[in-house]
Amino acid sequence: MSGALERRPGPRRRPALGYDERNAAILVFPVVAVLLVVAAYPILYSFWVSLHDIVLTRPLRRPFVGFDNYLRIFDDERFWLAVSRTTVYTVVTVAVTTLLAVLVALLLNEAFPGQRILSALLLVPWATPSVVNGLMWKWIYDPTYGLLNALLVQLGLLERYRAWLGDPDLTLLLIANAAVWKQMPLAALLLIVTMKAIPDDLYRAAKVDGANVFQRFIHVTLPALRPGLMLVLVYETMISIRHFDLFLIMTQGGPGDASFTLSWLIYVETFRSLRFGTGAAMSYVLAMATFLLSWALIRWLGKRI
């Protein structure tokens, strides 16, 4: 045997990735690549845009301004107006949606004739496209031929037709109502699923202890609902804070500035004023606010689960 053949093998180097890991990486790569192109790149590019003073109607100048766009936003009184409108809208929408969803979930968690049909019907608003929902409610509120006016006048509750969406004190609440109508079914479904997981033993034990219906709800149902409630609150908050379609269809931010929310401000800044730099910066602020709010909700509610 030659010396070369007798060479002692060194310690075997473990490959960086095993067979399974390599195959997994190969299989996952196309998805990762697609995500990088369609998600990561636009996110990073829009951040880059937010650092420039880009106005589409002045295509030859796009100076780098660093974080000036962000500072300008906080000096803009429209921004704070939009923040206040968004806050009111989000609080009303999330609170009413959650409350109604709990009530509907409690109802549909009981066995009664027609329960299955009612559960199926519950899905109709949720399955309605947002644009259709917006148009439907716009027509319901219409000052000349709206269903709401006709109903209230015929019931004698209203003397003459009103311009509901033309009343700046009511506009946000009426849009919130349209949002609740669409969003509540999904929230109720999520809560029903959580309720189904509550063991019957708990209710039986509570009954033995003499708890009435209300006490059973407070001490058994509600604590057990917390994971579902957290999901509903976080999801509804994320949806409501960024709501846009209803505002576009129903009021276009008006009347006046009555429904001038953050997402509407971003639309106006970006697609009407064509200021893509500040529009992108506002979008980042909204995204960060949504993220932080969701994170806070999860932390706050998570501790209580």
């Binding site: 008006g254 009347p255 006046g256 009555a258 009407r272 004023s273 200021r275």
Partner: peptide, 22 residues
């Protein structure tokens, strides 16, 4: 004007504020 598209947003809100008595 070159800034008409941007200005008209403010103008619209101002006129609506008058209509609403705001």
């Amino acid at each position: 004007s070159p800034w008409f598209g941007e200005w008209v947003e403010t103008s619209n809100q101002a006129w609506q504020a008058v209509c609403l008595g705001r």
